[in-house]
Amino acid sequence: MSEHVMSSKMYYGIWITLMVLTVVTAAVSFIDLGPFNTIVALSIATFKAILVVLFFMHVKYASEKLTKLVIASALFFLVLLLSLSMIDYLTRYLA
């Protein structure tokens, strides 16, 4: 079993990072960055999600093929959701 490859120190470190990034997101929302408002917020959120998936969900240390298959398919379907929705959003107001 690959359960205990991470020290509790690392868990706390990542937890603190996540908390700090939450504060940053909140703080940034008070500054008007124009078109970058959404980009910055989404980038921070994505980074946090990656941290959670890699460390809290142990994906970084996953060796099982089945686990990798599940992650790959989940990502693939996320891409389908985003890209096919974008076909609508990017062309909705074309004349």
Partner: peptide
């Protein structure tokens, strides 16, 4: 089955181009 969903939205105001694709 995962790449056909917007056929429920043809008259809802989605872009014509995406409607064609779906």
């Amino acid at each position: 089955g995962f790449i056909v969903w917007a056929h429920h939205m043809f008259v809802a105001g989605i872009s014509l181009y995406s409607a064609l694709v779906f």
